[in-house]
């Protein structure tokens, strides 16, 4: 972890060495903080998207399952996480459950100790709920006959899902999914309220040192760059799906 941390800092310092001559002083002075924060935001985003996708696929399957218990449990999960503000979810986990302390939480404490892990868990559960709904929408829009045909050719339920249904569901849901990732990126700024020094957290710290409102503009530009990268990535994926 520390090797990774050092590498991250080295990249951030190198980027700032290159940026400082071409950026305003009020940015250059705190540049490593912005870039460090940018990396934390990217980390949280990549990890929560990946883990959230696993949850989303499982929950989408559960929502379509004929097992009443699975079905209802999946519905309650996605309803609760889509129906409450992300900030409330973060605070319940960090200040609420987290305040029980090491004695009461036992082996769960390492997860609750750091704002970063709580941020990751909540962002994952939150995006998992939204994406499961997006995927479910894609799945129910595929003609029923396809699944029946897949099973008739001898594929198992899971094989049919992974080889026939999901690829098509993703194709249908792709633009909505891209939107959700950008929304998640913007939502991730809320982890700054639970001590995480993500891009927003670093920006607020820099602001408190300089009282210079320009710093929020710098952070907005960095968020825009990240949003642009996500959009390009999804555009690239969309083109691949068209040709493939």
């Amino acid at each position: 972890m520390s090797v990774y941390q050092d590498a991250k800092y080295a990249v951030s310092d190198a980027a700032c060495a290159a940026l400082t001559p071409v950026t305003p002083d009020s940015f250059g002075q705190f540049c490593p903080r912005f870039i460090d924060g940018f990396f934390v935001t990217v980390e949280l985003l990549v990890l929560s998207c990946a883990l959230g996708l696993v949850i989303a696929i499982s929950v989408a399957f559960a929502r379509l399952s004929s097992n009443m218990f699975l079905n209802k449990a999946a519905f309650v999960y996605s309803y609760v996480f889509r129906g409450t503000p992300l900030l409330v979810q973060l605070w319940i986990m960090y200040f609420g459950l987290g305040s029980l302390g090491a004695e009461n939480l036992g082996f769960l404490w390492p997860l609750f100790k750091e704002g970063w892990t709580i941020g990751l868990i909540v962002l994952t559960l939150n995006t998992g709920a939204y994406v499961s709904e997006i995927l479910r929408g894609g799945l129910v829009n595929i003609p029923k006959g396809q699944m029946e045909a897949a099973v008739a050719t001898g594929m198992s339920w899971f094989q049919s899902m992974f080889h026939i249904m999901l690829p098509q569901a993703f194709k249908i849901a792709w633009p909505a999914y891209g939107n959700e990732v950008v929304l998640l990126m913007k939502g991730s700024a809320l982890v700054s309220t639970i001590t995480v020094l993500d891009l927003m957290g670093q920006t607020r710290t820099v602001f408190s040192r300089s009282y210079n409102l320009e710093v929020y503009a710098y952070s907005a530009v960095l968020y825009l760059i990240l949003a642009g990268m996500i959009t390009l990535l999804f555009k690239f994926g969309e083109n691949r799906m068209k040709t493939g």
């Binding site: 200040f95 987290g98 305040s99 029980l100 302390g101 090491a102 100790k113 750091e114 001590t195």
Partner: peptide
């Protein structure tokens, strides 16, 4: 107060 509560919980 949030800082104090995290000191109490051991964070």
């Amino acid at each position: 107060s949030a800082a104090y509560s995290d000191l109490e919980s051991g964070r």
